[in-house]
Simulated scan of single mutants.
Amino acid sequence: MFNLKTIAKGAAASVVGASLFVSSAFGETVIRIQTVISAKADEVVMLKDFGEDVTALTNGEVRFEILPAGSVVGVAETLDAVDAGLIDGGFAWTHYWSGKHPAAMLFGSPVAGAGVGIDNIAFVSWFQFGGGKELYDQLWDEMGMNVKGFMLQPVGPEALGWFKEPITSMDDFRKYRFRTPPGIPGQTYKDIGVASVAMGGGDILPALEKGTIDAAEWCCPKPDSVFGFQKVLKHYYLQGLHQVVVNADLYLNKDVYDSLTPLQQKAIEVAANASLSKAMSYRIYENGKALKDLTENHGVILHDTPADYFPAYMNAAKASLEKNAAENEFFAKVWQSQKDFAAIAVPYWAGSQASNAALGKAFADSVK
């Protein structure tokens, strides 16, 4: 295993700078971004839309070239490669880097809505107006990363997952070997007695086919259907707490970002803010179409999640959050910011959403 920082801080970093200089000589700066997923994924569709907005806002001066996972470095090395200058930028979920700092989870996937009822829309409110953005910028310094991050794609809530047979209680749930996300969300399942198995997305379907695992979660109806879960499992549960909020983000090498003009930097910021809204809008419709297709054309049966799951998972998530806050000062600072925001915003937002949920459920029941 090579050390990315050692290799690239010198020669490779200068190569990046040279490539930008050559591009700029022709009136265009090309920023190469490696993703951690397939080029066909919905997240990459939305990432390209963000890039097109930046190009339009800069009158063609800045263009993003999107590279699929593994083009230059492995998925696990993506952030280190951005930091070192081996690639101009990366695209991933920030909780992927929880091994570098536990607070990364609070930005990429705050378990159980950070334990304080924050959904994906409220999370964007915290990020933009509740102090979250300033803490997000501080995260990279806490990690010691030469990175400028942009939050682009809030998703959620993610589905509980897919099962061979219906589950009516936590006792049923505990019978299954269940694929979960890594880090705190997966550990929380272990804490409530579920046999949690963390694995990469590309390994899930083969593991289900071989019987290595019996049940699994990935994301939401559209990404799940692209993975092909419906070919193996037919019982689907939408309501889950492990990733009520999930964000896919852009990471730029800080030297690359600093080389841009103030107007170009502002264009990226404006396009990122637009992406926060467009990503949620895109996901609602795409997931709706996918769920309709799954239930009408693939024999998938949609169930409500057992009631005893929610207190069990929430209590375990809170205990995990408290443990991490006690062990890490910056984690505690970010979580306190989310708790302070929630104390003000969640009572209002949850109350308002109750009307929306009742309205929507009445219509959904009529469609059934």
Rank of each mutant, 00 (worst) to 15 (best):
L252Q: 05
L252A: 03
N253T: 02
N253C: 07
N253H: 06
N253F: 04
N253R: 05
D255L: 07
D255H: 08
D255E: 11
V256G: 08
V256I: 11
V256N: 09
Y257D: 02
Y257P: 01
Y257G: 00
D258Y: 02
D258Q: 09
S259F: 07
P262C: 00
P262R: 05
Q264M: 14
Q264I: 10
Q265K: 15
Q265C: 00
Q265A: 00
I268A: 06
E269S: 02
V270E: 14
V270R: 10
A271D: 03
A272G: 05
A272K: 00
A274E: 14
A274L: 14
A274K: 15
A274W: 13
S275Y: 10
S275C: 10
L276E: 08
K278Y: 11
K278L: 05
A279Q: 08
S281M: 11
S281W: 04
R283A: 15
I284S: 12
Y285G: 13
E286F: 07
G288W: 06
K289P: 07
K289M: 14
K289N: 13
K289H: 13
A290L: 11
L291G: 06
K292E: 14
L294V: 06
E296W: 02
N297G: 04
N297S: 12
H298L: 07
H298D: 09
G299Y: 08
G299T: 03
V300A: 12
I301Y: 08
L302A: 03
L302N: 03
D304Q: 14
D304I: 00
T305S: 15
T305K: 10
T305D: 10
P306Y: 04
P306Q: 01
A307N: 14
D308M: 04
Y309S: 04
Y309V: 04
F310M: 05
P311I: 01
P311Q: 03
